[in-house]
Structures are given as C-alpha cells and as structure tokens.
Design a protein around this nucleic acid. Structure first.
Length: 415
RNA sequence: GCGGGUGUAGCUCAGUCGGUUAGAGCGCUAGAUUGUGGAUCUAGAGGUCGGGGGUUCAAUUCCCCUCACUCGCCCCA
C-alpha cells in the first residue's frame, strides 16, 4: 500500500454518484411500497453455510468469490454476495411462517471477489425484492411487474429487454439436465474447455456460452420446453398470460439459465446493451426449494436483485437538487444572529446553507455555485435596521426584509 | 483466475525519436470591486510524470516487476 487508496473494486459514493445512487434506491423503494412490499434490512454478513448451502457449493460465487473470514470467536463468516439467502435465513430465524405471504424490499452493499470492470465492483449495491409463500404464478407476475415498473419510474424501461424462461419444476429440470448431459457428451470433443468443465458442474450453463463453436452445438441442443411436464408448462403459460394482460413485453429466451442452484420455474433478466459486457440490470427467478434447503419449513419464494450502480449509470439524468437559500452573515454580531435565524428557517422547512468562511464576495460565489435561489445578507447595517437584505440570485434584485417576514418572502420567491 | 489497452496538476488531456526551468484548458486562491455572485482582466498556488527496480553520462520517455483503472473471457447485479 504505497499510497493511501481505496481497496480494489471499491468506490466512494460522493457527489453525482451518491445522488444517482440515492435516486435509484428512493425510486425503487417508493415503487415497492406501492406494491405492498415492506422493508427488511438483514445483516451484511452471515454464517458462511447460509450462502454456501443455498447458492450451491459448486457455484462460482461460493467457490471463489466470497469474502469469508474466521471471526475472533472462531465462527466462519462471509460478507453477503447477494440478498436472497440472508432474507430467507431471517424468515426462518424470525419464525415468520405465521405471516405468509410476505413481500420484502431491501437494498444495500454486497461483496464479491471478482475482477472489476465497468458495472462490476467488489463492493457493489443492490436493490432486492422477494415474495415468500406464494405457490401460484401470481407472485411471478407481480415480482416481474415490479421490476418493470421500477425501470419505468427510472425512465430506462425502453432501454431494457425482458428475457424470460422457465427451468421447470425440479422433476422437469432433472430430466432436461440428463438430456443435455447426454447430448453434450456426444459432442464433448468439439466443446470449448470452459464448457467441458460446465458439463460436469452446471450443464445448463453451456446454453448461454459465448464461444462460437459452442453456439453451433447449442443450436441443435434439446430445448427445455420439450421436457416440461404438464404442471410446469401450465405454470409458465400462466405467467406469460399475466404479463400479456399487463402489456409487459418480454422475449422468450430458452437459453436463459441461472447460475445459482436454487432456481426453479420462472427465470428472468432485464438486460441492456448499454453497459458493455454487464448486461443484466435486474435479474431473478423462483426458488421454491431454497428455504427448505436452509432447514426451514418448505416455503416457495421468488425474487430478483438489481444492480444500483448499473441502474444509476443508465438513469443518467441527475435528479434536480433542491435550490438552497444562502445565508451570508458579515461580522461577529451577524454570525450570532444568523445562527438563530438559520435554525428557524430550517425548522420552517427551508433548505438553508451558511458558509463558515470567506468574505461577502467569496460567499456569494459559493452560493452561485450551489445554484442557490437567493441570498440573505446580514451585516451591521441590516442589524441596525432590524432587517436582512434578500438578494434574488436569478435577477440580481434585492430588498430589505424585516426579520419576522423572511419566511413569507422566501415562500413567495420559491413558489 | 486468463488476455488486450491506459496511467503526466484537483479534473480533461498535450508533450518528450532519452538531454538542462514538464505545458494548456477548466477548476482553485488573491486582486481589479476594504459589504455584492454569474461575465471580463491580472497575478499566484498546485506535479516524487502511478509505485519499485534495471539499462544509460542522463529516464516522465526504453526494459522488467508491481499497483490501479479500463475492455473482453469466466461469472454475475
């Protein structure tokens, strides 16, 4: 550590980045609340098995991307690489099965030890939505709709495409998986090195390989749709029908698979081509077996996670900040009086900034830079007259205003 | 973990076929205006040329390593 610097893949949220971040979170939370989701904020670390068991020991995230450590009590702890496992753990340890169904919204940092690039960091931030305890396709429809509505509210829905697929129930998925293994084993000599590896660990993954040679083989591979049992096919049809009813456009993508073991039935991704290799902005699916796998009561679930940094980059328009009022006292007596006046104005709901240093010229420059709507100037002259000088920073006009009338005048100015 | 590109002032970038004091724009500070911002003018501050090592009389420039960023692979939000 030659220089003092942030850890690789971590960034300070400040200025425009912080504004974009908060904007995404606020828009998503508002939307989720309108859909009846309640907030949950689980710890950012859990016992390692919570993640390892649910995401699958064979998944890349668990194999090499987790920030794990032994704490001073000898416990095996991991920083969360995603939200779902922690929320399901909270559901189990909180005995929440009494209150099903539950709909949760969460947001915050997550951690993965990865090579950083655009839209991919080691500490990144997600918004997350989960519906627990709903077996039917209604939950799938609502959770996908919520994602679409958040993108709509952020003004970026048109920049995204919704890819949709089903992995079927565990029975269908297993049969399909066997069929894929058989098929790809026959073509093993022509598969890429990566895909030969996938064949053992996660054969479904071969379907979305970017390797040209793989793609040729994948083109003739058996399709999930052919292996769905009637129940799984009906379920997926109902999901599609619901989305059709709401006019939510989607693209059926039989190559869409999920990396994590716990997914069943519906899988979806809102993707964009505006962020380079990191296309997914909101992605998720159904995970009916997860809670039981964790040791809880068998409870179906479905959810998604969205990358706040990625969403923020797409929603480029910076939210317009409130224009403050700049208070400019000149001299000790004025500063003492300003302290009280500012306090009162802030209680009245005004956004007031008082610079702590600089002469009048300096402070007005600062006010201008903050796009302040007006400046309140208070010096010995004003104190003698019992007024402040209210300067309109848009047109340069100014007037004396009695101390008791400041709020009235400001309200008129801001209206 | 693997491959390519980049790293010069707070920011965006010139530049040096290896040579003496490394530049611009914007921003910052001060003054013109001892109590009036935006525009203009003037002056000023700010750089171990990412870090370490090597070659050389001499390295910001060439070579190696390293760190960070970036693009792609893997994987994923």
């Amino acid at each position: 550590m030659a220089k003092i610097q942030s850890v690789r893949g971590t960034h300070d949220l400040v200025g425009e980045t912080a504004a974009a971040h908060n904007y995404v979170v606020a828009a998503a939370r508002d939307c989720a609340h309108r859909y009846g989701f309640e907030d949950i904020d689980p710890p950012i670390f859990e016992f390692t098995p919570v993640f390892a068991r649910t995401m699958g020991e064979g998944s890349d995230v668990v194999r090499k991307e987790m920030y794990s450590f032994t704490d001073n009590g000898g416990e095996d702890i991991s920083l969360r690489p995603e939200f779902t496992a922690g929320i399901c753990r909270a559901f189990i340890s909180g005995g929440m099965q009494q209150n099903l169904p539950l709909k949760f919204f969460a947001h915050g940092p997550a951690f993965r030890y990865e090579r950083p690039q655009k839209g991919r960091q080691r500490q990144f931030h997600q918004i997350d939505a989960e519906i627990l305890g709903v077996e039917g396709p209604g939950a799938d429809i609502e959770i996908i709709t919520l994602g679409a509505e958040i993108l709509h509210d952020l003004g970026i829905l048109q920049a995204c495409v919704l890819d949709l697929n089903t992995l079927g129930d565990p029975e269908s998925r297993l049969v399909y998986r066997d069929a894929l293994v058989t098929y790809f084993s026959d073509h093993k000599d022509k598969l890429s090195e990566d895909s030969v590896d996938r064949l053992g660990r996660n054969p479904l993954r071969i379907l979305d390989s970017k390797d040209d040679g793989d793609r040729k083989i994948v083109a003739d591979a058996p399709l999930m749709a052919e292996f769905l049992n009637p129940a799984s096919a009906d379920f997926f049809a109902a999901v599609c029908e619901g989305l059709d009813t709401l006019g939510i456009a989607y693209n059926l993508n039989q190559r869409l698979v999920r990396g994590l073991d716990y997914y069943t039935h519906t899988a979806f991704e809102f993707v964009t081509d505006a962020l380079g290799a990191q296309g997914a902005v909101i992605a998720g699916g159904r995970y009916d077996g997860l809670i039981k796998m964790l040791g809880g009561p068998p409870t179906p679930g479905i959810g998604w996670a969205g990358g706040i940094e990625r969403l923020g980059m797409l929603a480029a328009h910076a939210p317009v900040p409130v224009r403050p009022i700049a208070f400019v006292p000149m001299g000790d007596a004025a500063e003492r009086l300003a302290l009280k006046l500012c306090h009162g104005l802030r209680r009245d709901g005004f956004t007031v900034d008082m610079a702590f240093r600089g002469n009048l010229s300096r402070r007005l420059k600062r006010a201008n830079k903050q796009h302040a709507r007006a400046a309140l100037i208070l010096g010995d002259d004003e104190i003698a007259k019992g007024v402040v000088t209210l300067r309109d920073l848009d047109d340069g006009g100014q007037q004396d205003v009695a101390l008791d009338d400041i709020a009235v005048h400001l309200r008129k100015l801001l209206a």
